[in-house]
């Protein structure tokens, strides 16, 4: 779901994942701006509802790097008196098409389902996602707790010291939680293979 528009993905998740991989590789083999522009149009056309959100998400992902490279290249080529507009079009279209394809995949392909048949990969993905979510939640909770106890704004030195202590406390708690989860998984036979 992107930008509030729920999209019902079609086809199997694994096919979607492989189609994305193939499309990404093909996009790096095409050097004609017209074909890359056509690729962008095809993605927008077939990506269904929520395509504006998809476009905006892709643009946000690549705009800073594209601006940096394009402006730098334009400045350099103007200095040498030969601005290569064709190259800039090619690069911008290629990077944008790749971002568009990835945003589409992220929106419509459930990675957990696409990895069915590869239990180890599925397990690692789940473990990592849970740990990332746990660390984020713990860090947020600890930060809020410190804020609620502080009546005046801390100095930079105090913030660094508190940040270090908080970070290590979060790490302890996360390892403790992960050990408990591992024991639970082991007791249910989830780690037997």
């Amino acid at each position: 779901m992107v930008g509030g528009a729920r999209v019902r993905p079609k086809g199997s998740p694994r096919a979607g994942l492989f189609a994305w991989l193939a499309a990404v590789v093909v996009a790096t083999l095409v050097h004609e701006p017209a074909w890359l522009a056509a690729g962008c149009a095809v993605v927008v056309l077939f990506s269904g509802g929520g395509r504006v959100a998809l476009l905006l998400r892709s643009l946000r992902a690549v705009l800073p790097i594209l601006l940096l490279i394009s402006i730098g290249y334009l400045l350099m080529s103007w200095l040498t008196g030969d601005p290569a507009w064709g190259f800039l079009l090619l690069l911008n279209l290629r990077v944008f098409l790749l971002a568009l394809l990835t945003s589409w995949m992220l929106r419509d392909v459930r990675i957990e389902l696409a990895l069915q048949g590869w239990p180890r990969a599925q397990r690692w993905l789940s473990i990592l996602r849970v740990q990332v979510a746990t660390l984020r939640r713990l860090a947020g909770e600890y930060r809020d707790a410190v804020k609620s106890r502080s009546t005046i704004a801390p100095t930079l030195r105090q913030r660094y010291r508190a940040g270090g202590a908080l970070g290590l406390a979060v790490l302890d708690k996360a390892v403790y939680n992960a050990e408990a989860v591992t024991q639970g998984m082991r007791s249910r036979g989830a780690l037997d293979d």
């Binding site: 473990i127 990592l128 740990q131 990332v132 746990t134 660390l135 984020r136 790490l171 996360a174 390892v175 992960a178 050990e179 989860v181 591992t182 780690l191």
Partner: peptide, 13 residues
């Protein structure tokens, strides 16, 4: 396993 999972998540963050 749990330590590696936490440290990998930490590297991600």
């Amino acid at each position: 396993l749990p330590r590696l999972a936490v440290f990998t998540a930490l590297a991600f963050l």
